[in-house]
Structures are given as C-alpha cells and as structure tokens.
Design a protein around this nucleic acid. Structure first.
Lengths: 213, 213
DNA sequence: GCAGCAGTAATCAAACTTGAATAGCTGATC
DNA sequence: GATCAGCTATTCAAGTTTGATTACTGCTGC
C-alpha cells in the first residue's frame, strides 16, 4: 500500500489538517484514481492505519457543515512527516517499485530541494541501468538465448521498459536542472490541493486507463 | 487477480493435471515471482477459487511420494479452457491492464494461432495510440499546459509509457510475422513447464525487481 | 542413531482492496 | 410539498494478497 500511503500522507501534509473526503477529492484532482488504487475504501483504511501507527493524529469533528455523517480530521505527526519523506525518497530513487508509487512521488517531487530531487532521480537511472544489465545476463542461458523461445520476449519487454524508463527519467532530470518548476525553499510553493469548496475541474468520473498500478 | 488466474490456468493446462507446488515451481521457472504477485498463498487461493467456480476439477491424492502433506491435483474443465483463452486474448489486446497480465500472456502467446496473435497485438497497438491521444487532450487545460506545473510530468510519463509500449509491441508483431517461434497448429509445441522431478535452473531465490505489477 | 538442514506441500491470520451501501442535507421538479 | 437527484462523508462485507508458519520426509554429518 505504499502508493496510497504516500498519496494520503502527502495530501494531508499539504492541507495541514484534512478529513477523508478532502483527501479523496485531492487524489481525484491529481488523476490518482486513474493510475492507483485510490478508491474511497482504501483511502479511509489508509488514514485509520496511519493513525494507528502513530503517523497521524485523529481529531473527531462535529457533523460537517454541508451534510453527511460526522467527520474525522487528520494531521501528520512528526513521525508521519519523517515517513512521508522517507517514502518519497525511496519511491523516486528505487526503480523496483510499482508504477503508481512513482507517479505519486512525481506529484510530490517539489516538496524536496531541487538538488536532492536530481540526485534521487540520477540514482534511479543508475538502478535502471544496473537492472537492465542483470536481466540480459541472468536470463541468457549458457546454451544461447534461443533456448528460451518466445519466453525471451518477456525479458525483452523488461529491457524495453528499463530503457524507456531511464530515458524518461533523464529527460526529467534535464528539465529540472534547466530550472523548471518551483522546488522547496525557492519561494511560493506550488498549490496542489483543492481549497475547501473549490470544484475539481478534472472530475469527470470516466476514462479509466489504470495503467501499471 | 487476472494475472494469477491466467498464470495458474495456463500452467495447469500445460501439465494436464497439476498440484499447487508444481504450479508454484513453474511460475518460478518463468520468473513470474519477479513480475507478478505469484506467492504461494496467492497460487493456492487461485486454485481453490477456480475450482469453486467450476473452471477446475480437484482430485484429492494420497500423501506425496516425496514428503510433505497430502496434496490436491487440479485439471481444467471445458469452462476453464474457455476462460483461459478469453483471458489470454483480453490480456494481449487490451492495453489498459496491469503489466503482469501482459507478461503472463506473452508467456502463453504461442497457445494461439499465429495470425490471431498478430491480430490481437495490432489491436493493442491501436488501443495504445488512442489512449495516448486521450491523455494529451484530456489533460491539457484550456489555459495551457503550464497550469499543471510539475504535475504535467505524470502525464508525460504516461505518454512515454504508451509510446514505449506501442514500439515494443510493433517489434514483437514484426518478429512474429517474420516467422519467429512455433505457434498453435505448427507442429511440436514449446515445452514451458518443468517435468516431475526436473530442477529449475533459474531458481535462485534472490533478485526481485517486481517491475510494474 | 539422531540433530539438523533442505526440500516438498499446503494453510493461516492479518493486512489490504473493492464495490456497494448508508445516511444526512440541499436544491430542483412536478 | 413530496420526492428525486445529487453532493457530502463514511462504513462495511466480501474478496485478495502477504509473509509467516506448519507439517512431513529424506539425507548428511558426527
């Protein structure tokens, strides 16, 4: 559940204090329901879990002003902030994680200082190159790759994915080094959450590629 | 659970009759534990589930000849075979499925006639191109793409993935049309499972990229 | 001759995910 | 002015996945 974890931690952190529905809305705003398992059930589960693990503080709040059942607001603890950054760094630098985790991490990329973001992404590229090498070596039987028959196509797909991933990452590094976006400590931070009452311009409720996961 | 479903159906089908541990071993032989959630628990669960749904017949067998608790052998029913091919076709042609499903499907690709495999893969390419278009259109706000800030990088990643996936698929189509591999109805089929007692030359128990899923 | 390790085979509790259901309020429609 | 649709907000049961654990056998060294 690291992707959900990262998303929920990041969303609550940006609000300072948020309830489940707010988080759910942010994630939809980010398109997260399309590339991750960010369904209501999972979000509420994650919030409870994180609270149980001491990463969030829960505050019971009176019934909402606009109808619905009474709601609970959450707030990161110090440990929660630590966990957030640890997860963010790991998701960016380690290639052997699910795609939804990377997507989430890209969304929070600017919470880090610029140089650190670049360093982590370079680490990712290194990992991808290493992995590519290990796949081609490990899965080449002693008696030649023909032994594998069409099974070799699976490895070929991995290699292709590794190359594509590395290429994309290099492009991103270039843009960041070129001065794109506003990172931590560089002034007015990027506003990535919906204010109370603001409508989500991207909420359509359709189109569900669910690529990767 | 479609990936596990496909893997288990395909493995049992190739054996004719197989017990859980045999399936588990085949999946490891294929490297499936590296790119799918093919853990023992999931495999046994899938077998039971498939049996419950009438896609497999279960046979209780006396305690194994080589130690361990009594085992159960499974065998595809007619409905199971139908389901297997339906799943295989869907996994190959639909781009909006998880990567592990595609990996599994590639492993079983040669269970289909050559022309059908090509047709399904072409369908996949069409879907990827369409999806690429929808991503670039849908996530370009009226007031220009800069509005999205670094969030646009997530969409960029998708587009990159779509392009890479389409390119890889086209390459595969080319190789198949060029006569590579032995498909259904073309003589001696490819042997993709371990015979009883044969050791798995790829079983190392380490290296776990877990790419995609 | 037996302690311990490696291999065979399967199960279980706990955690996680899914999709649907619930429940209250507002505004529109007939 | 009843009721229906739609939004706010959360919970729940059922299904799936995970990681550990169990249980049994054969071999190996001492």
């Amino acid at each position: 559940m690291s992707a959900i974890r990262l998303l929920v931690l990041g969303a609550v952190r940006q609000h300072g204090r948020a309830h489940g529905y707010q988080v759910r809305n942010d994630l939809e705003y980010w398109g997260a329901h399309e590339w991750s398992n960010a369904k209501p059930g999972s979000i509420y589960h994650a919030l409870k879990q994180l609270a149980k693990q001491g990463l969030m503080r829960a505050h019971d709040i009176a019934p909402s002003p606009a109808g619905g059942p009474p709601r609970t607001e959450y707030e990161l603890t110090e440990a929660g902030t630590q966990e957030y950054f640890a997860l963010l760094r790991a998701s960016l630098s380690q290639h052997d994680r699910k795609v939804d985790e990377l997507s989430a991490a890209i969304g929070f990329l600017v919470d880090l200082p610029r140089e650190e973001a670049v360093a982590l992404l370079k680490e990712r590229v290194r990992g991808l190159e290493e992995w590519r090498l290990s796949v081609t070596e490990y899965y080449t039987p002693a008696d030649g790759p023909e032994q594998l028959g069409h099974i070799g196509e699976i490895m070929n797909m991995w290699v292709h994915a590794a190359d594509g991933g590395a290429e994309w990452t290099r492009g991103l590094i270039e843009r960041i080094e070129g001065g794109a976006y506003v990172f931590a400590g560089e002034g007015e931070p990027f506003v990535g959450v919906l204010a109370e009452g603001q409508v989500n311009p991207y909420a359509t409720g359709e189109a569900d590629p669910e690529y990767g996961d």
